[in-house]
Structure formats: C-alpha cells, structure tokens
Amino acid sequence: MNFEEIFSELKRKEAKDCDSFICEGKDLVNTLEALKAKGYEMLIDLTAIDHGVEASPRFSTIYHLLSLGEKNYLRISVDCEAREEPVVPSVVEVFPAAEWHEREAFDMFGIKFENHPDMRRILMWDEYEHFPLRKDFPLAGIESEYPEQDVVERTDLKVKAAPMAGGPFVADTAGPMSQTEPMAKDQSWTESKPKKEA
C-alpha cells in the first residue's frame, strides 16, 4: 500500500523494522479510523516516549497497528507540542483496546488523552504526584506520603526512595555463589547508609 498517497497527513519516518509515519495530533483519530477501514484493524500497542528534558518535541505517543490481511505492521507516532502537560487526542473511540494503554501512558508520562472516558492512573495510586517514566524522575523514586491514612496510623508507612546504589543490579559470574547474587556494584548508598549530598 502506498500510504503517503492515500493518507496525505502521514509523513514517512525512517525505521528499520516496519512502516513508520509521523502524524499530527489533530489528524490522529481520523487517520486511525481510515487505516482501520483499510484493514489495519488491530491495535498492537500504544505507548509513549520521553525524548529528554531538553529535547524538542519532548513527548511522543506511539501507536502500533497490524493488518491481518496484509500481514503488515505499521507505526504511527505523534509528537506532543507541550513540554510539561502534553495533550493528545484519545483513540478509544476507534480502538477500545487503547483505553488502559492510554491510562498507563498517562500514569507513567503524564500525557493527557483528550476525550478519554476514564483518565485515571492505572498502576500508581491516584494521589501520586510524579510521573515515573519521565527522564527527570530519579530511578530510585521520590519520597512521598502514603495515601491510606489508616495504614499510615498503624505502620508509619512512607513511600521511600529505594536506593539503587549506583545503578541497576548486576551479577558477577566469577567466584562462589554466595558472592554472585545480583547486586549493585556501588554499595555506598544503602538503606542503612544515607546518600551523601553532592
């Protein structure tokens, strides 16, 4: 299928795996509807990317479609204009499967999906103030209050940053098994030893 001729609003984007296009936010719903009518009837995935705090555009949402008839994958990406509170139209009307994916993208990146029927967080709790997959969110997390008051009263529970102690866990392959457990190489910051302020 020659996508550019049929869909004038799509701009081809270089990609090594499948047909990939950039679409404007305002054209998104119509385009997906048209693609669905052309056989791209399955929404495989919907996710988002934070290109970095300084990057422009900062956020993109990604839609993967599959045509079962043509046996072809298609990727549509939409760049968000806003840097702090990005907004993208929801595609739930076209693909009902998008509902929870959009909630996840909202939960992790803070991208608001316009006309979504139920725009709530899905993984983190409703009172959480941060968006964990944004590039400016520290890997270890941010200390915050626990939202359930009755549990806090009984246990003094707080949402604490989990020390990453220098990065993701790695496993040594050499040496006895007791020392080859996956652990962070740098143990200078742990639960018992607070992090030194730089």
Binding site: A140, I142, T155, A161
Partner: peptide
C-alpha cells in the same frame, strides 16, 4: 526485601507493614 524490584512502586519488604 523487595527483591530485585528496587523501584518507586515496590514496597521494600513486607515487614514494613
């Protein structure tokens, strides 16, 4: 202990509650 999930979402050991 939270195991390998050292992350913002995981309680680091159920003995905290």
């Amino acid at each position: 202990t939270g195991g390998m999930y050292r992350s913002y979402a995981t309680l680091q050991g159920v003995d905290r509650i």
